[in-house]
């Protein structure tokens, strides 16, 4: 009984309006940055795939260069990237704080990650399917858009799910530089003002968010897998 009372006290002490606003902000950051990550990462992943060794447009130097850039961005701790990106972010969206200030670093952090996942997914497509398309006289765009991407679609959905979940944790981290959302709330109230209950609720919501994203992603992958 004592425990339940404590829990009730905790939940009542939290400002749910703030939590609601912060949750919406997190969803906006994740959703917005996911859109840009896919828009930039998919073409980058396709180029990585095509220029890779023994692929259709094999080009060792271009592949090496892109690979280096991707590895560089991926090896950089996200917190550092957040800070390094501040001038670029200001130039792009006019501010480095809040939801809009968080999106550019999130996109820059997640795009190389997503592109690498895309490259791996595309490499898994049976080489025979590419050859069959070539033997039918398909042009390069026809091979990519008509055969490779549709075949890889479930894999691409899975890669998008993984990326969305990574973005949830990145978005929370952006609270460090005042990025808004649940992470921001957790740092300002939960950490700096010792309101442990805010911290607990925030983590709980993030957990639920990740679970929901994974479940939806898995269902979509299943829905589009033909075997």
């Amino acid at each position: 009984m004592n425990f339940i009372n404590m829990l009730m006290d905790t939940l009542l002490a939290v400002d749910w309006a703030d939590i609601g606003v912060a949750t919406m902000e997190t969803l906006t950051m994740v959703g917005g940055s996911l859109v840009f990550t896919v828009l930039l990462g998919l073409p980058l992943g396709i180029v990585l795939f095509l220029t890779g060794p023994r692929q259709l447009l094999a080009h060792a130097r271009l592949y090496g260069f892109l690979s280096l850039v991707v590895n560089l961005l991926r090896s950089m701790p996200f917190v550092i990237l957040l800070i390094l990106m501040i001038p670029v972010t200001v130039a792009l969206v006019g501010t480095s704080i809040g939801v809009s200030g968080a999106i550019p670093p999130l996109v820059v952090g997640a795009t190389p990650f997503f592109a690498r996942l895309v490259e791996n997914v595309l490499r898994e497509v049976d080489r025979g399917i590419i050859e069959a398309s070539q033997s039918m006289g398909a042009s390069l765009p026809q091979i990519i858009f008509g055969a490779v991407l549709p075949e890889a679609f479930p894999g691409l959905l899975a890669a998008t799910t993984v990326t969305a979940i990574a973005l949830v944790s990145y978005a929370a981290m952006s609270g460090v530089i005042g990025g808004g959302g649940l992470g921001d709330l957790a740092i300002r109230f939960g950490y700096q003002r010792f309101q442990t209950e805010v911290m607990i609720v925030t983590v709980g919501i993030l957990l639920v968010l990740v679970q929901v994203l994974q479940a939806v992603g898995d269902r979509l992958v299943h829905r589009y897998t033909r075997s």
Binding site: G128, I129, Y224
Partner: peptide
């Protein structure tokens, strides 16, 4: 082809 190489998603 020996292994058919059909488009599995179609």
């Amino acid at each position: 082809f020996q292994h058919f190489n059909l488009l599995g998603a179609k």
